[in-house]
Design a protein around this nucleic acid. Structure first.
Length: 284
DNA sequence: AACCAGGTTCATT
DNA sequence: AATGAACATGGT
């Protein structure tokens, strides 16, 4: 069991960070979060300013949870109006993870038009059915299958995972990733929004999913995924003039995204996460 | 039991 | 360029 001491100037809220719907491979059982990150199992809990964890190195811990970032400075930079201020006061400590891009690709293709518990089911089914077993202390656990594994499957192989129409996207997307194993490094090397355009060439990846992958998988903190919850809060508080009719009026994705990025700046993605929470919990 | 969900794609205007 | 419908599934 290892320990990591959080400094007072770098707030962190493990529970919110793992439960907020950016990652779908974590489960909380008797006070401990357990999950698989990459190929390794992880157990972790937070007691005040102390993180207790096992299964990973400290450097992985710091990188994965983004503990190297000065969150207070980031939140100060996005705190530009009363709405985001309320969300920040409520959720300070929520951080954006640095997940594996392939995991993000799978997760957010599945996430379209689905509730978060359902997304978790789908991702779990993919791992349990096709992923390599991981020797976790709590019992049976699996990593997510690599693109190569999924790309070799035939039509219908995913049926038992109950992915709905998303299954039609997963296999072609896996083939595309498998035929160019360096795709993540290529995107990493690309300038700002070019990587996003490359991601949108994957089947099943539109603007929203691409923004999620850039934000959660490539640490592109300016990305601002616009889902139904964000659309609501943006329509109500940030672009009423641009919106045709009340809550669901913000039609044009690119317009909402541009307004948010201009308003919140280079860490718009952090604002997105805080607004997402606030919108879902009825805070705004 | 309807309604809706971290949307994308395709066919029409 | 912009809108509308189909798409599968299951949580609330």
């Amino acid at each position: 069991m290892k320990k990591y001491r959080l400094s007072a100037s770098r707030p962190f809220d493990l529970d919110r960070t793992l439960a907020c719907g950016q990652a779908f491979r974590w489960e909380c059982r008797d006070g401990w979060w357990q999950g698989v990150a990459g190929k390794k199992w992880v157990r972790i809990r937070q007691d005040g300013d102390c993180l207790r964890y096992e299964g990973i190195s400290e450097s992985f811990l710091v990188h994965y949870f983004g503990l190297d970032l000065d969150l207070n400075a980031i939140l100060a930079s996005i705190n530009r109006d009363p709405v985001i201020d309320r969300a920040i006061r409520q959720y300070r400590g929520l951080r954006i993870l640095r997940q594996d891009p392939w995991e993000c690709l799978l997760s957010f293709i599945c996430a379209q038009n689905a509730h978060i518990p359902f997304i978790t089911r789908m991702i779990t089914a993919l791992a349990d059915t096709f992923g390599d077993p991981v020797d976790a202390p709590w019992g049976d656990a699996h990593a997510l299958p690599d693109a190569g594994v999924l790309s070799a499957l035939g039509d219908g192989a995913l049926d038992s995972c109950r992915l709905g129409y998303r299954a039609r996207y997963i296999l072609p997307a896996a083939r595309r990733a498998a035929e160019d194993p360096a795709w993540t490094e290529k995107i990493r090397a690309l300038p700002d929004d070019t990587g996003r355009q490359v991601l949108m060439q994957f089947p099943g990846v539109g603007p929203k999913v691409a923004d999620c992958i850039m934000l959660f998988g490539f640490s592109h903190y300016r990305s601002f995924p616009v889902d139904v919850w964000i659309r609501r809060v943006m329509a109500r508080h940030y672009c009423p003039g641009e919106c045709r009719d009340g809550a669901l009026g913000c039609r044009e994705y690119e317009t909402v995204r541009r307004i948010a990025q201009e308003h919140f700046g280079p860490y718009a993605g952090y604002a997105q996460e805080y607004l997402f929470m606030a919108s879902r919990e009825g805070l705004v």
